[in-house]
Design a protein around this nucleic acid. Structure first.
Length: 960
RNA sequence: GCCCUGGUGGUGGAACUGGUAGACACGCAGGACUUAAAAUCCUGUGGCCGUUGAGGCCGUAUCGGUUCGAUUCCGAUCCGGGGUACCA
């Protein structure tokens, strides 16, 4: 009988739970360390092998910090609002809370099995009213706040109202939506309704028109990812872009601070770069173009006002508000047609297909503000309504997108900056001298920009402006399963509900679908009115609401008086180490920074950033199995579509598509027809006519080899067909339930144990890199665990430890490993740590070392990685308390340093031989000794060295 | 498209600041123990040529550059992964 991991692991998990070993104290004299994982959405598929990767890493750090003497906060919870549970509710009628509860229970079981050192007393769920009460509370704070650009922080809306009452809005410098100026008297003359409407333009949580993907048939708004080629992924219904009233958060007010404060946090440069690009600060100028024969003016934003003399046309986004008014009757038909077309293209499509140039002339002309000449006004969907003003002055000579557009529609191109060759491509660089530009001629680009902005301002055509690509965050969702927005309407004006009425709980509804009129599911709630009288807001908050502040709640998870107490937040402050996926780089990680700054501005928390250090763990990728199918109608007479799987070696057909086959189907296990869910529900759009010949070929094949399978029939589907007849191509991609390629950790734990899973996931490779999952190397890790056990036992598996003093060789092995693992954890290189444990155990095994002086520290340094076996060995060694209370050993350089170093001797950079020399020699002594050696003389073959490069304790390179 | 990121043996990976490429592990091949299997242990293992206790050449996606020396730095190209604002 060898090491019995099943028994040992169970024993220690129970011990930890019973003794509350990992409870964090809010009052402690120890230094604090807060390690946080991005909490999971509890999906129905359960935890897959990708989830624990980051959790294991953070758990190692948490356990390591504990044995270094820190008071460690290492909590876990659930991001439990979200679409999948709602989708399931629509299909089955099961309340999402029930599905969510079940999923959470399964997650908890799975998490428990891995032996994490979480403080479960602090568990939280975003869908729990105790939690979302405070999410709503923060929303109310956002509603009653405005951003004062003078004090550069958010302030209570009362200070704004006071200012309006004394001075109107003329001298206010605020982050706001477009608002007309008014005086104090005008403000006072406004009625309640009008005043509230004005205030909405300043609030940090406000209602505005936003562009969304609207699907009339489904009666709902869709995420970009739910839209494929202008049709809904689910059902294949057409989707159009539409303006809708939506709650938004004014994150743009914080753009500058979100950008600047990046410099003070220890996040990876690439992640900071992504956030910088996302915020997209650009300096430039606004500029108005008068429209010929009209009162209207088009305002553009440009970062290159210096190229104004090269502006040869104007392009508006198709959604631009002036399009309808400008278009001449002659062009109305074509313009309308183009607008219809562009409505079907998502913003992403539009940005992605830059090669596909589309646009339409409106028939109208604008007046060039400096030249006075007329330039045509076009619409084109390469101009996005949401950025800048939704209009650009096109300078084809110096902007590649304008250039392609001009070439395609044969519009004039005027060079105004020298240095490029505009006959082939635009010259976008901000370098060169201005030409063809009147008073700007001869200036450098930089100087020209300064001069033209001054000129624009003098002439009142516009002003210098900083623009951000960052847009305000749309906060309302046309969904059921999210936090209700704590707003009610009186006289059409939104008001927040009283704080004492929080939480505003989700009402009961009969169905989780939008109403027939296309209102959100909450409109179905019966008698759901504030104070029995006022309509509530019917949209709910997005998935990122709860996650924007949850890290604070863990500090004081059960407080029913405050979202977090002063004492708790003053002690824990911020997250010392935050681990999560890079896919959150520009979503969650910007929102949580935004909320943190907002709460700081209100004086509620003492920090301006949520996390000092952030690590992105790489995604564990799954292997999806793709089968080729063809979906066809053979002729017009045949009514139903037929789906055929294509056999091996069948030539590629033009109208074939690939579908995912469940991974467990291709391996062992039974097939359940319900699993073939992803049969690309957009098939109706994809119907192709297949010629009789091809149809017959496929049909004959299946009739001959598998008659019951000739048509796709999931009921009779059998695994053997795949192996024998079907061409399955594996594809590495994100592991996700929807891609049918999920692998759970459960089987591995049963077979090898939790310690083995932990070590193996770390051993797989660097934490940050994405890697496909495979279990090829797991045997090696399992062997390591058994070898480790054997060091403490004799041949009969009896515990046996010697009390003798350790030899220098043994000490060297131990201290080398302590040093390595301490350094590795500090730089989050967990895979190399595991390797060094293996080397250590191999070497100690070779020396037959079973000395307490070596094996006791060894158990401690292994314990963050493999806590179960470490606890067992620790208790065998005679300790009563958990190894979590042990002390991480120091390493001593003395035991490690070598007397000699094996110098690799290279000639012209090629290693030829090694020579061992004392490691304390000077460069001169080294080269003298080396050159005196016969082997070296022989290799030099009589040639005189031109140069000798000596790097002590590294290398010697002889150049001849 | 744009932004980020990666590419090293049959496989996962190591090489931390430009200094011995392939640590550690899997797999594979051969061997020991065993009636047999499992487990365990030993030996070999980047490619090509040559030897069978000589050695040589090539080799870190591709091409080029900087350097005494490049997996590491620079430029270009190809390929994979993530994000792209209502998935979380």
């Amino acid at each position: 009988m060898e090491y019995n991991f099943t028994e040992v692991e169970k024993k220690w998990r129970e011990y930890w739970a019973e003794h509350k070993t990992f409870r964090a104290e809010n009052n402690s004299t120890k230094p604090k360390y807060y390690v946080l994982d991005m909490f999971p959405y509890p999906s129905g598929a359960g935890l897959h092998v990708g989830h624990p990767l980051g959790y294991i890493a953070s758990d190692i750090v948490a356990r390591y910090k504990r044995i270094q003497g820190y008071n460690v906060l290492h909590p876990m919870g659930y991001d439990s609002f979200g679409l999948p549970a709602e989708q399931y509710a629509i299909q089955t009628g099961t309340h999402p809370a029930i599905t969510t509860e079940q999923n959470i229970n399964r997650y908890r079981d799975q998490l428990d099995n891995i032996g994490f050192s979480f403080d479960w007393e602090r568990e939280l769920r975003t869908s729990n009213p105790d939690f979302y009460k405070w999410t709503q509370w923060i929303f109310i704070k956002l509603f009653h706040a405005w951003y004062n650009n003078k004090s550069n922080k958010a302030e209570d809306i009362k200070t704004l109202v006071a200012e309006f009452e004394s001075n109107g809005n003329t001298s206010i410098h605020a982050a706001c939506s477009d608002t007309e100026t008014f005086s104090a008297d005008e403000w006072k003359a406004m009625g309640e309704k009008q005043q509230q409407t004005v205030l909405l333009n300043y609030r940090l949580a406000y209602l505005s028109d936003a562009m969304v993907n609207w699907c009339p048939q489904l009666g709902t708004v869709l995420a970009n990812e739910e839209v494929k080629d202008g049709f809904s992924e689910r059902g294949g219904y057409p989707v159009v872009r539409k303006l809708m009233k939506q709650w938004s958060l004014r994150i743009t007010a914080y753009a500058e601070r979100l950008l600047n404060d990046l410099k003070d946090i220890d996040w990876s440069p690439s992640l900071k770069e992504m956030q910088e690009n996302w915020i997209g600060r650009s300096e430039g100028s606004s500029l108005r173009f008068k429209v010929q024969n009209s009162e209207a003016a088009i305002e553009v934003f440009t970062t290159r006002p210096d190229t104004i003399f090269g502006a040869t046309f104007i392009t508006l986004a198709p959604e631009h508000e002036l399009v309808e008014a400008l278009t001449t009757p002659e062009y109305k038909g074509k313009v309308d047609e183009y607008i219809q077309y562009s409505k079907t293209r998502s913003e992403r499509d539009r940005m992605a297909d830059v090669k596909k140039i589309t646009g339409q002339f409106t028939g109208a002309y604008a007046v060039h503000p400096f030249k006075g000449s007329l330039i045509p006004i076009w619409i084109g969907d390469y101009v996005l309504a949401g950025y800048g003003t939704g209009a650009v002055m096109a300078v084809p000579a110096h902007d590649s997108r304008d250039y392609s557009f001009a070439k395609y529609f044969d519009l004039p191109i005027t060079e105004v900056v020298s240095g490029g060759d505009i006959s082939n491509e635009s010259y976008d660089a901000k370098e060169g001298k201005l030409i063809n530009s009147d008073f700007l001629n001869g200036l450098d680009v930089k100087d020209a920009i300064k001069k033209i902005i001054a000129e624009i301002e003098t002439r009142g055509l516009g002003k210098g402006k900083t623009n951000y690509r960052l847009r305000d965050a749309i906060f309302g969702r046309q969904r059921y399963w999210g936090e209700p927005i704590p707003i009610y309407y009186r006289d059409g004006i939104p008001y927040t509900i009283d704080e004492k009425d929080l939480p505003l709980e989700l009402p009961v509804v009969d169905k989780y679908l939008p109403t027939e009129e296309g209102e959100p599911p909450l409109a179905r709630a019966k008698d759901w009115k504030y104070k029995g009288e006022y309509e509530y807001e019917q949209t709910t908050m997005p998935g990122w609401a709860g996650s924007s502040w949850y890290y604070l709640r863990y500090m004081d998870a059960h407080n029913d008086k405050e979202f977090v107490s002063r004492d708790a937040v003053n002690y824990w402050k911020d997250v010392d180490l935050y681990i999560g996926g890079a896919e959150h780089a520009t979503g969650h990680l910007l929102y949580v920074r935004f909320w943190t700054k907002f709460l700081y501005d209100l004086g509620l928390i003492p920090v301006i950033e949520p996390a000092r250090k952030l690590i992105n763990q790489g995604m564990i990728l799954g292997v999806s199995m793709l089968a080729r199918i063809v979906n066809c109608v053979v002729s017009n007479e045949m009514q139903d579509t037929q789906l055929f799987f294509l056999p091996n070696d069948f030539p590629t057909l033009e109208n074939e598509i690939k579908i995912r086959v469940p991974i467990e189907f291709v391996e062992d296990g039974k097939f359940h027809s319900s699993k073939l869910v992803k049969l690309r529900e957009k098939l109706p759009n994809n119907i192709e006519f297949l010629d009789y010949e091809t149809f017959d070929k496929i049909k004959n094949f299946w009739d001959q080899f598998a008659p019951e399978f000739s048509k796709m029939n999931v009921e009779t589907f059998d695994k053997s067909y795949f192996n024998e007849y079907l061409d399955i191509t594996p594809e590495v991609e994100k592991m996700s339930k929807s891609k049918l390629n999920v692998i759970t950790p459960d089987d591995i734990i049963t077979k090898y144990g939790a310690d083995c899973l932990r070590l193996y996931e770390m051993f797989l490779g660097p934490l940050e890199l994405p890697k496909p999952w495979n279990t090829n190397g797991i045997e090696g890790v399992s062997k390591f665990i058994r070898k480790l056990w054997r060091l403490y036992h004799d041949g009969e598996n009896n515990y046996k430890i010697s009390e003798d003093a350790a030899t220098p060789a043994e000490l060297k092995i131990l201290h080398k490993t302590i040093k390595k693992t301490a350094e590795d954890i500090d730089r989050f290189s967990f895979n190399t740590s595991v390797s060094s444990f293996m080397i250590c155990v191999n070497e100690l095994t070779e020396l037959k070392c079973n000395k307490r002086a070596i094996l006791e520290p060894l158990a401690i340094i292994v314990s963050p990685y493999a806590p179960h076996i470490a606890e067992e060995l620790w208790s065998l060694l005679g300790h009563e308390k958990s190894i979590s209370f042990a002390e991480f050993p120091d390493w001593k350089e003395l035991y490690i340093t070598d007397q000699n170093f094996d110098y690799p001797i290279s000639i012209n950079g090629k290693t030829r031989l090694k020579i061992s020399l004392p490691s304390d020699l000077t460069k001169e002594e080294i080269s003298a000794k080396i050159l005196a050696r016969d082997e070296v003389k022989k290799l030099l073959d009589g040639k005189t060295p031109k140069n000798i490069i000596v790097v002590p304790n590294r290398i010697v390179n002889i150049v001849v």
